[in-house]
Amino acid sequence: MEDEVIKKFLYVNRKAPYGTIYALESLEVVLIGAAFDQDVSLAFIDDGVYQLKKDQKTSVDSGIGMKDFSKTYLALGDYDVNKIYVDKASLDERGLTADDLMELVYEDEDDDYKEKSSISIVNQDELALLMEQQDVVLSF
């Protein structure tokens, strides 16, 4: 794998978590893709920001009939997926702030394994630039 070219992948998430299968599918693709050692970023825009809302209660017993996958976002750091960008305008228009989101963290191997936040709240110019820098953009 050493000499393989590392490509930049951006996963764009724009759907709320339970009404459709998009959010879960995206998360599964991200985790599977994480095995390939690519440069992975996640963007959450529009209703996609609801995927990161903390305190979701979706256990199998809660009766909503969906896998309890909100906790799985907390494992992203273990999978070295630690560049998570949230569109500020989407949070604003939904009355949400960074405090409403799950605390997604990773351990920085280059900084004595210090725990750092994976989430950046960004404006649309920063996100547009991020999109431009990608080799592959996958939308969900």
Binding site: Q134, V137, S139, F140
Partner: peptide
Amino acid sequence: YAGFVDLAAENTVQAWL
């Protein structure tokens, strides 16, 4: 359609679903 294919081939595509 041919024009669509050319555009898609020349660029990174972002599909807004």
